[in-house]
Design a protein around this nucleic acid. Structure first.
Lengths: 348, 348
DNA sequence: GCGGACATAGTAAACGTTTGCTCCCAAGGA
DNA sequence: TCCTTGGGAGCAAACGTTTACTATGTCCGC
C-alpha cells in the first residue's frame, strides 16, 4: 500500500499526503485531517527505506560493543535504545567479541545501511575502517578507546578518581598487601585502570608489589584463574582490586571454593558497578561508572556532531566521572584469619 | 558514490555491475573482475535501502524481548544475531518491558522498516497489532506466549520435564515442605511453570501447601520480597523452587541477609540456567532451558516460514526440552538447622 | 550460407518516498 | 481596475538499486 493509494482516496496529491504525514504546517488542516483518516482506515505505514533513500537519512545509529552477554553492556544498550527511540532513531547493535574480523564485518554492514553515526565501545577498530567511516563523514564517538591518531569524538573516563578512592579506602582499612587483577592489557581501558591503580598506590605511599599484579580477562573465569595465580604466589594479598565486576565475581567464586571468607579474610573491590554487584554475596564494594550516563553521553555526542553544520575536524572530548560505592566486600584487615588457607600464607 | 559511477569507470552498464556484485553467473568473469577492482578501488558499498526498496526485501528480522538487562536474554540475542549475520540478515532489537504501549510502538517501527519476520519473546501483544502483522504476511514466531486464537508459529517449552526432575530431586533429598515462587502470573510462561510444579508435586504424592506458593516478578528484587513473605508465614519451607534464576538469586541474597545457609538450611532450585547460575555462591541447581537452542529454533522458524511458498495458515509448533542440572544449592534436608532462624520454624 | 539457439550485455522501468518548482487563487494596496 | 504578495496545492524529478525485456554476437547443424 502506497502513498499514492492514500493520495487517490483522499483526493489530493502525493505531495500533500507526504506533507500531512510529516506534519508540515503549510497544509490545510482540513486536508490533513482527511489524509490522516484515510491513513488510519487503511492501516498505512510509510516505507522507511523509500524515505531514507530520497532524504538521504537512514535514521539509524550503529552501536558496537564487545559482548552483549557481559552484564556491563545491556544497561548501556537499554538506555541508548530508549533515547534513540525518543529521537526517532533505530539502533543497529553488534557485539564483536573484540575480534577485528567481526568488527570489520560489522562496520561494513553499518556503512551499507548508511548509519548516521556510530558509537564504538570496543577494541579492534582498524585504521582502514576508520578511514572508510570518516571518508563518509559519519559521526563517530569512541568511548575510551579512540585511536590516538584519529581526530574523533571521545568519551574519556576518569578512572583515577574512583580508583584513588578505592585504594584510599583499602589503605584506611589498614590493607597494604593490595593485589590488582587487570583486564586484558591490550585494551586501552584496561591499561588505563592499571595505571590509575599504580598511580594511586604511589600517591598514598604504598608499594605495589609486582607479584601482586596479574592480568585477567574481564570475565568471571578470568577472575577465577587470576586469583588462583595470586594464591600460588609467595605473598598473600589481604585485599584485591579488580579491573571490573565480573573479575571480582570470579575472585569471590574462587574464594568460596577455597574456603576463604570475604570480607573477613579478604577484601574485594570491583569496577563498573553493574547492577548485579549489589546482589552478589557479599554485596560488592566497587567503583561506579554509570552505564546510563555513558549511554547518554555517547548518544548526545553523536547527535551534536550530526547537527553541527561544519563537522568538527578535531572531535570533542567528554569525560565521565567514576567514584567508589561502599558495600559489604571490604573490611578492616584481620591479623588472624580464621579460615584455613589453601597454602600457608607467607606471613612471618 | 553510485553503482553508476562504478559502471562508468568499468565501462559497463549498471545492470552488469549489479550482476557482478550479486555474483550472478551469467556475467563474464573478465568483466566481473574489472567491476570488482573498480569497486575495491573506490571503496564502494551498495546502498541497502535502495536494494531493499526495489527487491522488496529488507533483510531485517525483528526480535522483541522484555528486558535486555535480564541476563536471560543477552545469550539469546547473541546467538540470534550471530545466525542472522550468517544469513545476511540484520536484527532489529527491542525491549518492551512487557509494556503494551512500548510493544505497540516497537511493532509499528518494525512494520515501517518492513521487517521480514518477527520473533516475539515477551508478553503484551495486542490482537490489533497481530492483525496488522498478519495482514502483511510477516512471518511470526512466538515463544511460549502465542495468543490462543492466533494461528502463528510457536515455540512451546516443555516445562514439565525439567520441573518434574527438580521436584523429584528435592523429594529424593527428603524435602516435603517445598515452596514455589512463581513469576508474574499474568505471563503465560509463568503460569505454565507453576502448573508444572503443581502437577509434579501431585504426581509424586506430595502436597503443595498453598501458603508456600507465592508470586514473584522474575527479578532479584522479587525473589527477595517473595522469600520475605515465605519467612513471615507459618510453615517454613526446607526447599524453594523458583520460576527463574533471578528469583533464586533474590532468595539467596535474602537468605544471606537472614543468616540462613544454603544448602544446609535451605535448598534452592532455579529455572533457566543463565550463565551466571554456575558462578553464584553456592552454584545454583537449576532447570536448564537452552537459550542458544531457543534462539536457533526461533530463527529457523522464521526462515522456514519465509521460504514456504504458500504461507501456512496454521503455524508450526516447535518444542524445547528442559532438564535439571545439579549444582551446589540443594542438599538432603537437615532436621536440625544449625543457624538461628529469624522466626521459630513451625516444626513439631 | 542460413536459421536457430545460446550466452552476455545493455536499456529502461520500476520500487515508494521527498521536495524544488510551478501554478492558482484570494486578498490587499495603489 | 490592476498589480503584488503569499498561502497552499500539485507536478515531476530525483534517490540507488534490481530485473524483465531486448539486442548483439557467436557457434553450430544442415
Amino acid at each position: 500500500m502506497d502513498i499514492r493509494e492514500i493520495a487517490k482516496r483522499a483526493r489530493v496529491s502525493t505531495a500533500t499526503v507526504s506533507r500531512a504525514i510529516n506534519r508540515i504546517p503549510t497544509v490545510n488542516p482540513q486536508l490533513a485531517k482527511r489524509v490522516w483518516s484515510v491513513i488510519e482506515e487503511l492501516g498505512y505505514y510509510p516505507n522507511t527505506q523509500a524515505r531514507a533513500l530520497v532524504s538521504g537519512r537512514s535514521r539509524i545509529f550503529g552501536l558496537i560493543i564487545s559482548e552483549i552477554t557481559n552484564p556491563f553492556f545491556p544497561e548501556i544498550v537499554q538506555v541508548f535504545e530508549r533515547i534513540a527511540v525518543q529521537h526517532d532513531y533505530e539502533i543497529m547493535l553488534t557485539s564483536t567479541g573484540n575480534d577485528p574480523t567481526h568488527m570489520e564485518a560489522a562496520v561494513r554492514r553499518m556503512i551499507e545501511r548508511r548509519v548516521e553515526g556510530v558509537a564504538i565501545m570496543t577494541f579492534g577498530m582498524e585504521e582502514v575502517l576508520l578511514e572508510d567511516l570518516k571518508l563518509r563523514k559519519v559521526p563517530l564517538v569512541f568511548v575510551d578507546v579512540g585511536p590516538p591518531r584519529a581526530r574523533v569524538s571521545n568519551i574519556r573516563i576518569d578512572y583515577l578518581h574512583g580508583i584513588r578512592q578505592a585504594v584510599q579506602h583499602l589503605a584506611a582499612l589498614r590493607h597494604h598487601k593490595i593485589a590488582f587483577i587487570s583486564g586484558p592489557l591490550h585494551l586501552k581501558s584496561a591499561e588505563a585502570r592499571k595505571q590509575a591503580f599504580l598511580g594511586s598506590m604511589e600517591e598514598i605511599g604504598l608499594e605495589a608489589d609486582p607479584a601482586l599484579i596479574v592480568e585477567g580477562t574481564h570475565t568471571i573465569e578470568g577472575g577465577i584463574v587470576a586469583f588462583g595465580k595470586l594464591l600460588d604466589g609467595a605473598t598473600r594479598p589481604t585485599a584485591i582490586l579488580c579491573s571490573n565486576d565480573m573479575t571480582a565475581m570470579g575472585v569471590m567464586r574462587k574464594a568460596y571454593e577455597e574456603g576463604i571468607r570475604i570480607p573477613s579474610d579478604l577484601s574485594v573491590i570491583g569496577f563498573d558497578d553493574i547492577r548485579l554487584a549489589q546482589f552478589v554475596l557479599p554485596a560488592l564494594t566497587t567503583v561506579q561508572m554509570s552505564q546510563a550516563d555513558l549511554a547518554r553521553l555517547a548518544f548526545n555526542a553523536l547527535l551534536t556532531e550530526l547537527q553541527r553544520e561544519t563537522p568538527s575536524a578535531t572531535g570533542t572530548e567528554y569525560t565521565l566521572k567514576t567514584h567508589l560505592v561502599l558495600r559489604e566486600s571490604t573490611r578492616l584487615v584481620s591479623d588472624h584469619p580464621k579460615t584455613p588457607a589453601r597454602k600457608t600464607p607467607a606471613r612471618p
